[in-house]
Design a protein around this nucleic acid. Structure first.
Lengths: 161, 161
DNA sequence: CGTAGTGTCTATAGCGACTATAGAGTCAAC
DNA sequence: GTTGACTCTATAGTCGCTATAGACACTACG
């Protein structure tokens, strides 16, 4: 018994609009329709959507998922590249963690820079104004500025809600 | 001696278009102009832009930076809320780190799921198809799905390049 | 039978912080 | 005078959704 889009949304934990969006983006095939033009999904659609959501949870972007789906549909070559994809994501995640940990030490330095309750000469503002965030940031290879650069890749592999 | 926009970009490490964007967004005041309508920046603009970039590096979004700048320009109230802002960012960053570390364990499980070199029955694809990513994700409070939710806030405080 | 409430449809615009592109003007050096 | 680097404005694109508007479909209740 086929599902309407709302039921599929409930089962997959994503929103109705997101399902339609995946269809528009070519990740889900155009489903059958009722006489009233309502979308009808079958078991293979349910599985495909779950696959997509799992991939998103693993930080993959839609282009990568499209590739994986194409391979699933027509596994013509070796899957070695999938290993590489996963390795790449692990490396990405490690880089993000390192950057965030560094960022955290910076923020903690900031936190102790001001006692609060001041109308002027707030130590935090001073620090944001003049201080280099920490000694390591004096040189070119500050992890915090690396963090900036890393976010492009990061942005592309983001899951929201 | 005032700077043209390209020189300011070099000094601040951000791009020309980004500077114009900050002006459009009201973070930088409209600068003076040459007869040829080129923007001219003075020392206080340089400082202000550095302040903005440092804040961005600390993961603050443009709305927060606008608030900080307004306070810097007219420090009429206590700066206690700045401490709160920093605390909030630390908590955010901690949440992001936890989510990413969890994501990493998931990806590492995936990595060992397939030896590669297969045309069919790739273990990684199987795992993405059917497996729940890890035992902890069987219940409702999986950190990985928390990761999904956290990214809204995260997205708002992102620095790219 | 009407109607209220929910679900679905399409199309379009908005989010955040930029980034890219087009087409035109400016300036310095050769 | 012409090449190349720089600047200007205005507009559209990025990513993965999310929100909105206006219309149609379906079900339950009186």
């Amino acid at each position: 018994m086929p599902l309407k889009i709302g039921e599929l949304a409930k089962r997959s934990g994503c929103q109705v609009v997101t399902i339609r969006y995946y269809e528009k983006e070519g990740l889900l095939p155009p489903p059958e329709r009722t006489d009233a033009n309502y979308r009808l999904y079958n078991d293979s659609d349910v599985e495909r959507l779950h696959f997509i959501r799992r991939c998103r949870l693993h930080g993959m972007n839609l282009a990568e998922i499209r590739e994986l789906l194409a391979f699933k549909d027509h596994p013509t070559v070796s899957c070695a590249w999938i290993n590489e994809l996963v390795e790449k994501h692990i490396a990405d995640v490690e880089r993000q963690i390192a950057s965030l940990q560094h960022l955290k030490t910076h923020l903690e330095t900031l936190r102790h820079a001001c006692s609060g309750d001041r109308q002027q000469d707030c130590g935090i503002l001073d620090s944001l104004d003049h201080g280099s965030p920490c000694a390591c940031c004096e040189d070119e290879h500050c992890a915090l500025s690396e963090y900036q650069k890393s976010t492009d890749a990061e942005k592309k592999a983001r899951v929201s809600r």
